[in-house]
Nucleic acid binder design. Structure first.
Length: 233
DNA sequence: AAAAAAATCAACCGCTGCACG
DNA sequence: ACGTGCAGCGGTTGATTTTTT
């Protein structure tokens, strides 16, 4: 076969004809683990498989390491607390799985995404928290069916003046971070009230844009969760 | 017990944004 | 300023396992 360099478009990340695909064997896992433990990734996944002696694509190695082999990975079922955090963050930021996973120690974006798509979504559907038809959007999970008074924010360009908090939100707060952490993260959000002692059940976010809302860190989410369910008024 | 259907989840694909020359 | 190569990410696929009929 001739080896004409491909000058049109991006070159493939690896030679697909010469890399193994499909499930990883325990032997491959051991090789990858051993190599990374002794050499690290060197910030270059593309060259890693060759150096480690693996017939795998660099992307595949990266995925395997990040999702299954790296230390601290938490396997097994999700707890009620984790369910709650996923639901609440999804309602706030949508399908940003990497961001959501970063709030769940030991969980990966792939894990959270699979869990949401296969089980949690059904759980919420069954409970009437999201509509049975149409897409699951930030707006319609924030405004679960028992609270029809909240406006549809899916196309909004600015935030309403207040986030209105209600009791009896289904999310428990037992696994959330300390108030010290909350204060630190809240202080990075322009316009946010960082005086935690002054927070009441109705916290004003007047002037914040939708982008600001997406930037709200877990601290403010904590405040919202610890006070009850929320919608917008 | 066997077949079919449904559920699960590991892995791949392709796009995006960033860093760097 | 621009092009290139990369890691990171979300969407999707498909093999495997579990449940139902």
């Amino acid at each position: 076969m001739s080896q004409t360099p491909n000058t049109m478009g991006r070159a493939p990340c690896c030679d697909k004809a010469n890399v193994k695909r499909g499930p990883w064997s325990p032997e491959e896992d051991a090789i990858l683990k051993g190599y990374i433990h002794s050499h690290g990734t060197d910030g270059n996944w593309i060259s890693l498989p060759q150096k480690a002696g693996l017939k795998r694509c660099g992307k595949s190695c990266r995925l395997r390491w990040l999702n299954y082999l790296r230390p601290g990975i938490k396997l097994g079922g999700f707890t009620e607390e984790e369910d709650s955090i996923i639901c609440s963050l999804f309602s706030s930021i949508g399908s940003r799985w990497a961001v959501i996973a970063s709030k769940l120690p030991g969980r990966t974006d792939n894990d959270v995404k699979n869990y949401w798509n296969t089980r949690l979504k059904k759980k919420l559907l069954a409970g009437g928290w999201i509509p049975a038809t149409g897409n699951t959007t930030t707006a319609n999970i924030i405004n679960p069916s028992p609270n029809p008074s909240y406006p549809d924010l899916s196309t909004a360009s600015t935030l309403p003046h207040q986030i209105h908090l209600e009791p009896n939100f289904f999310c428990p707060s037992s696994s959330l971070p300390s108030l010290t952490d909350v204060s630190d993260s809240a202080s990075s959000v322009a316009g946010a009230n960082t005086d935690l002692s002054s927070w009441t059940t109705e916290e004003s976010y007047s002037g914040l844009s939708i982008d600001n809302l997406l930037d709200l860190d877990f601290g403010i989410m904590y405040k919202i969760l610890s006070n009850g369910s929320f919608g917008f008024s």
